[in-house]
């Protein structure tokens, strides 16, 4: 029983880290699941690259490695719901494990084409608010650059093992689209288009989560996440800068 509970708890924590949750939620959820099953005091060590859970005064310890990280808000919400249902005895441990395993292999709820269109529109809409300009002529090009940049980031990220390359190539695509589009007279202002269309690959949610981790005392994961976001930012700046300098 305890052995099983600790497995399920670590699995829930792993799904949360993979979905980009804050660290206190990972610790909290893991502890809640294992405590409920065992009545023992649980100790948990969580970081972005692995989780370690231990039951006091027993030989049970589990470690689980986390290899890929992204943002998937729906999974955070589902794991949160499931762990609460389990703590209120609405689910048994076996049902919880089954649902968590199902969740781990579930596809994102929005299909890729919808995500791409979303990324394109995000770029186009934020171009208006960020730059405080009202050039409707730039709207189609900002949409196209944002969508293509997101697609490139997504495909390179899912095929290539080297980190930070996807963001660099995505930013390069956005820059090239903007500059070439303006040269072909499809838009007017390169600067505004790039400011808008670069929004989708920016690591906004990880930076906020890293700040919250640091302020809540999870120094290790906060600094890990901040460093990761800063390197992604540098990769994006390098991609855009290359286009601006040599085109």
């Amino acid at each position: 029983m305890e052995n099983k509970a600790i497995n399920v708890g670590v699995l829930a924590g792993k799904i949360l880290v993979e979905a980009g949750s804050e660290m206190w939620r990972v610790e909290d959820t893991t502890k809640r699941i294992v405590d409920h099953a065992s009545n023992n005091k649980t100790e948990a060590f969580t970081s972005l690259t692995g989780l370690l859970v231990n039951l006091k005064d027993t030989p049970y310890t589990r470690f689980m490695q986390v290899e890929k990280r992204g943002i998937n808000m729906n999974n955070i919400n589902s794991v949160n719901d499931l762990s609460r249902q389990y703590a209120q005895d609405k689910l048994t441990l076996d049902e919880l494990e089954e649902k968590l395993l199902h969740l781990q292999h579930k596809k994102p709820q929005y299909p890729l084409w919808l995500q791409t269109i979303g990324a394109g529109f995000e770029g186009a809409f934020f171009m208006f608010t960020f730059t405080q300009t009202y050039n409707w002529e730039d709207f189609p090009l900002a949409f196209f650059a944002g969508a293509l940049g997101y697609l490139v980031t997504y495909y390179v990220g899912s095929r290539v093992k080297i980190r930070f390359m996807s963001e660099f190539l995505g930013a390069l695509t956005v820059g090239l689209c903007a500059v070439i589009g303006v040269r072909l007279h499809l838009g007017i202002n390169v600067q505004n288009i790039i400011i808008g269309a670069i929004m989708p690959p920016l690591p906004g949610v990880p930076i906020i989560n890293s700040m919250r981790d640091i302020f809540e005392g999870n120094l290790l994961s906060g600094i890990e996440r901040l460093m990761e976001s800063l390197i992604i930012l540098s990769a994006i700046a390098f991609g855009v800068g290359l286009v601006l300098r040599y085109m």
């Binding site: 999974n75 995500q115 995000e122 809409f125």
Partner: peptide, 10 residues
């Protein structure tokens, strides 16, 4: 639209 590609629940 940002919510669409971070998989925000409906």
């Amino acid at each position: 639209t940002f919510g669409l590609f971070i998989n925000l629940p409906q």
